[in-house]
Design a protein around this nucleic acid. Sequence first.
DNA 1: CTGTTAGCGCTTTCAC
DNA 2: GTGAAAGCGCTAACAG
Lengths: 340, 340
Amino acid sequence: MPTIKDVAREAGVSIATVSYVLNNKEAFVSAETRRQVLETIERIGYTPNVTARNLKASQTRLIGYAWHEVPHNQVNSVLDRFTYYLAQAAEAAGYHVLTFTHAQHDPLPAYQELINTQRVDAFVLSGTNADDPRIRFLMDENFPFVCFGRSNPEWNFYWVDTDGEQGVYEAVNYLIGLGHRQIAVAAWPEQSITGNFRLAGYFRALREAGIDISPDYVVRGEHSEQAGREALASWCRLPRREQPTAVVAMSDLVAIGVMNEAETRGLVVGESLSVIGFDDAPMSQYLRPALTTIQQPIVEIGQALIEMLQAVLKKEQPEIPNLLIPTRFIRRASCGFIVR
Amino acid sequence: MPTIKDVAREAGVSIATVSYVLNNKEAFVSAETRRQVLETIERIGYTPNVTARNLKASQTRLIGYAWHEVPHNQVNSVLDRFTYYLAQAAEAAGYHVLTFTHAQHDPLPAYQELINTQRVDAFVLSGTNADDPRIRFLMDENFPFVCFGRSNPEWNFYWVDTDGEQGVYEAVNYLIGLGHRQIAVAAWPEQSITGNFRLAGYFRALREAGIDISPDYVVRGEHSEQAGREALASWCRLPRREQPTAVVAMSDLVAIGVMNEAETRGLVVGESLSVIGFDDAPMSQYLRPALTTIQQPIVEIGQALIEMLQAVLKKEQPEIPNLLIPTRFIRRASCGFIVR
DNA sequence: CTGTTAGCGCTTTCAC
DNA sequence: GTGAAAGCGCTAACAG
């Protein structure tokens, strides 16, 4: 590989001059010299060595992003695809994404290591939760980062998130528009901050529509198919007339559990029971019936995060320290007019 | 961040001595000095700067891996999860994975750029196909890489692949064991090398069982749900008695198309029609009925690739230039004894 | 055993 | 305008 020295020698100039040309220091070099240098660069096929540049500049142009380990009975298609769009947005800004893994319940050493070795300039976090130790840690370390997801509202950090509250609000309104009044929700555990935002949308929609909220209709469980099954099973234990005619789940995976259990119990999803998920997992469009769901705006989130990160790295206060991006409601066949 | 100079000053030794300690050049430094240096390192919290080390060593300890863009009506859960295991294996070997994206039909510039800027030490490719331009390019460039997947058999390069032939062979034998004789296959286009290996397993199983292969039973189509639907539709156009009782698809996505179309046509999957997929996509376990499938050994593939890559980077001939890893057959509810 | 020093490839200050 | 030279943080050859 040719170096700056080779270019200088070939072009009959000093390496400083080559560097000026490379860095568009127009004022420092005559048009003619510049032309000659560029011609030489072209001819010998020179590209600056990024490691050397980075050493000089004390940067890496690398953004660390931790993979989430997904148990085999789960799915996290949203985060998997998000990573693609994140990489794309990062590249547009002249960065690359370095992916790394960590022990499921002990993420900090992996972050610490990347900071200590100065491997990355910043991190992007996803799947944040309340009092997330990673956020606390990075704030303590005063290391640049942005989050896909919220956390402790008292903490002052930069994040972008899906507006789950609004998304579920719209979804429930849609069900109300179909005539449903007995709408249940398969919620996440109380510690799940994301789950709580989504749940708030459920409450708001019912409240605004003047529908009483039955505590029986709010069942909490994990992000699993099993949880969806159990939720529906519990609603089926209610007196016949009190059973919900529609269900909103916190994720497509949970919604699938609801659908599967419904089938087992002789309910027809899309007719005697309407179901809505969250995420728009790739497979959801192919379920029978196809699942109505709430799509997360992962493309926009990736772009917004990188934009915010650039401001953080420039030590500017990003104009907007955080951002809520609307979801997109995906209407499919799993919901129908009330029939019962 | 402290540097090697700070350690040297604090410990009252030269930076060379610190470097010797860091690099375990035991012979070059007395036990006592060593102890003192280590103590200082610990005390001031020093970690070597990886960029500086890399510049010196002309390496990056970064492995480039290109994301595949997945159209929204498709799924590629296998590659998404593979990336996680690849990152894990890379880290165990002291590398990190740098992910990047490229224009769907013009990948080479992205590879070229990473080579020219000396951003990565090597690449891992996946989703390879016949006469893959990326492979040809990297061979021409003489740049280190290994592949998840095969390509032109005349080319001499390092790869690890799923043994799709054996996987489908087992699957078809399983169907034969259930009494099926009319077994169809939803195959991929002829250019798909991966598809052809899998298809070969289908032919071998039938041949060994002495079952005639009907050309009507081999339908080719894309990797899409629609292709699965169309394949089943075409079989349903055969005379009633000639219609297949079992179907093997090249992917879970195609299998889902087959299942969905079957339902539309009043066939009961797992009873009047058996279906087998390929991949074990995360959702497949939750389909109704749950999909019998062939799981790709992505954990082992990731590990094998990194092992191979290490040998390549050491300029050793890897002992085994390529490796076929067996699949795991996942028996679920979508297959049953023949009933027709 | 330990230290001095050159140099990896680049940017930038400073002198001419 | 241009070039010499220092230096980013580290490794390793060489001298002592």
